[in-house]
Design a protein around this nucleic acid. Structure first.
Length: 417
RNA sequence: GGAGAGAUGCUCGAGUGGUUGAAGAGGAUAGUCUUGAAAACUAUUGUGCCGGCAACGGUACCGUGGGUUCGAAUCCCACUCUCUCCGCCA
């Protein structure tokens, strides 16, 4: 959510940025509702003031017939006004909620194709044999079972088996130890959250196609699509002390995603599934520090890839690919020897105060005033995709996959899969 | 899941229809005193929205949402959460 005052003063900018993000928002209509709302609010408050004055006069005295009538009239007037205010207020709030965050001017414009490569790392030289894709590789060895996943739950569900389970857990453990060393507080979080939290974090779908969140029938509960969701809401409605910022958390949880609109290419195997496990970094900080933390978090993502020796590149996300909440976003993409291209592995966003406003997360600044915090989220380890990147990059001609050196201590010294 | 109790400001806690934005205590901040500190004393100590350059004014907020009333923290209804006891259970 943006500050309505900011929108009032920068209507054209906000509208232009929204368009460039690919969002269709009607700012003039929003401002019209805003004005209507404020006019009515003024009237309501005037009546309330009159009512309060009357009540003041009657505080101890017995009210006269006439005064009771006067009071009744005021009440009627007020409830009439409130009735007309309600739909306007509602429309206003809805409209305001649809306005996406702005983004800095140095953001590449356009969709996914406009994402710009910032830097790359690692050896992506062709191997002198044909690298087998992870699905064939995993299914041949009985380590991945999509067929039974489909039987038991449906398409895009799967069973992970045997040594791949160990790999998965080794990755998680390495990631957790990694973040602890970086002073992030590790967290296990609720996997189900109420709808206010879904809304407040900006995960509410605009269209059926974009629907990402699984809902629990007949309950106000939703499966989380990332630990970012409960971690953001962790401090909802709180005013944090300046000295306690930044707050650094790392959530480990499964991510449940409908992926309703996602089909076609890149949808095979573990790359896009309805459920995977993830270690997610999350930062609450002062507005002036968020850019610094954003850079730092991307740096950590890269460091993690480097420790695993997975070739990657960092991509600056273009306006049209930012989504509603993000102000600035980088993706880390691993090199896929199978596809001969880079594929998304991690994502790191600075959402500025967009989520903090919705969830009312503030801090008390030096002067005693309050201000919204900035929040940032970044993947450290989406284990399913990391597993793909390891199977592909660490495959040997014999078909064996050697274990990255950094992971070996977590796998009892095992050398290959 | 059943029965009961409760939810008030930074914290504890008073308040069951009208000078209550809210007593009192603690904490915090500032000042006086002191060589310094402590103690003591004094003062300050909410947030959102609307209007205003500002000083300030208006309004809302005592778990949440409705209702009764001229007037609600206080009465009524529903919901949420917490605690105690019982049941079930990894």
């Amino acid at each position: 959510m943006l500050d309505i005052r900011f929108i009032r003063e920068n209507a054209e900018l906000v509208e232009q940025k929204a368009k460039q993000k690919g969002f269709d928002v009607n700012i003039p209509h929003l401002l019209e509702m805003d004005e209507k709302r404020r006019d009515l609010l003024k009237e309501v408050e005037d009546i309330r003031a009159q009512r309060n004055t009357l009540a003041e006069q009657l505080r101890s005295a017995k009210p006269s017939e006439e005064q009771v009538e006067q009071g009744k009239a005021l009440r009627q007037k007020m409830s009439d006004l409130e009735v007309s205010l309600k739909p306007i207020e509602k429309e206003f709030t809805n409209l305001l909620g649809t306005v996406p965050n702005i983004f800095p001017d140095d953001t590449p414009l356009g969709g996914e194709e406009a994402n710009s490569e910032e830097r790359k790392w690692g050896d992506k030289a062709d191997k002198d044999f044909e690298v087998v894709d992870h699905v064939s590789w995993g299914e041949q060895r009985g380590l991945l079972d999509f067929e039974r996943g489909a039987k038991v739950a449906g398409n895009k569900f799967y069973f992970t088996t045997g040594s791949l389970v160990q790999l998965e857990m080794a990755l998680s453990q390495m990631a957790i130890e990694f973040v602890i060393k970086q002073n992030f507080v590790p967290m296990l979080v609720p996997h189900l959250v109420n709808s206010r939290v879904i809304d407040g974090t900006g995960f509410t779908a605009r269209t059926k196609e974009e629907e990402q969140i699984y809902k629990i029938e007949a309950e106000d509960l939703n499966l989380i699509a990332t630990a970012e969701i409960p971690l953001t809401a962790y401090h909802a409605d709180e005013t944090l002390a300046e000295k306690d910022l930044p707050k650094l958390y790392a959530g480990y949880s499964p991510a449940y995603r409908k992926e309703a609109g996602a089909y076609g290419k890149h949808s095979k195997g573990l790359y896009r599934v309805h459920q995977f496990n993830k270690v997610e970094m999350y930062v609450f900080c002062k507005p002036e520090d968020s850019e610094k933390w954003h850079q730092k978090m991307v740096e950590l993502e890269e460091k993690f890839c480097q420790e695993l020796a997975i070739p990657y590149r960092v991509v600056r996300i273009a306006a049209g690919d930012l989504g509603a909440a993000a102000y600035k976003k980088y993706d880390v993409e691993y090199w896929s020897p199978v596809d001969k291209s880079y594929r998304e592995l991690m994502s790191c966003s600075n959402v500025t105060d967009y989520q903090a406003r919705r969830l009312n997360i503030r801090y008390r600044d030096g002067s005693g005033g309050t201000n919204y915090v900035h929040t940032l989220n970044g993947t450290l380890a989406a284990t399913s995709r990391l597993i793909i990147s390891i199977i592909e990059n660490y495959q040997t001609e014999s078909g064996k996959v050697s274990i990255p050196i950094a992971l070996r201590p977590y796998m009892g010294g095992q050398l290959t899969l």
